[in-house]
């Protein structure tokens, strides 16, 4: 059974790109436009991994991450931040919030499927 990936990004084109590339790479893909939608979808579908943009309207990635971690239904889902932050402080924030890692923007879309496969494998081994 294919893994389900929830992609959260406010940029329409990015969502399309992620969707198409991940689908063609064999994943099931859920899309959300902001943190709030992401929390709803995560509770409902319990994806295997969430790719979470940080700067978003309505609810940003960090707040969504906190909600997901505090909810027993979603607290075990892996979350990777999609970040263009380069300062240490911001990255500390990700980990403090309970993110499992981050992928620096600009994301090398060609490498993304591989990155995801590697990540899922490392989680399964545990």
């Amino acid at each position: 059974m294919p893994h389900t990936i929830l992609v959260v990004d406010d940029n329409d084109q990015n969502r399309v790109l992620f969707h198409d590339v991940l689908v063609i790479s064999g994943f099931d893909v859920l899309l959300a436009e902001n943190g709030e939608e992401a929390v709803h979808l995560a509770r409902e579908h319990h994806p295997d991994l969430i790719l979470m943009d940080i700067q978003m309207p309505v609810m940003n990635g960090l707040d969504a991450g906190k909600l997901l971690r505090s909810d027993p239904r979603t607290k075990d889902i892996g979350i990777l931040a999609l970040s263009c932050a380069t300062t240490i402080d911001d990255k500390d924030d990700f980990f403090a919030t309970g993110f499992d890692g981050y992928i620096d923007k600009p994301i090398d879309i060609r490498m993304l499927p591989n990155t995801i496969i590697k990540y899922l494998a490392s989680v399964n081994r545990k």
């Binding site: 940029n11 084109q13 990015n14 790109l17 198409d20 600009p106 994301i107 090398d108 060609r110």
Partner: peptide, 20 residues
Amino acid sequence: LRTPLNSVIGFSEVLVDEMF
């Protein structure tokens, strides 16, 4: 500026790779 540009680059990469 980077956000849309990342799209431009991402889509081009996917095309160049002939993924589709």
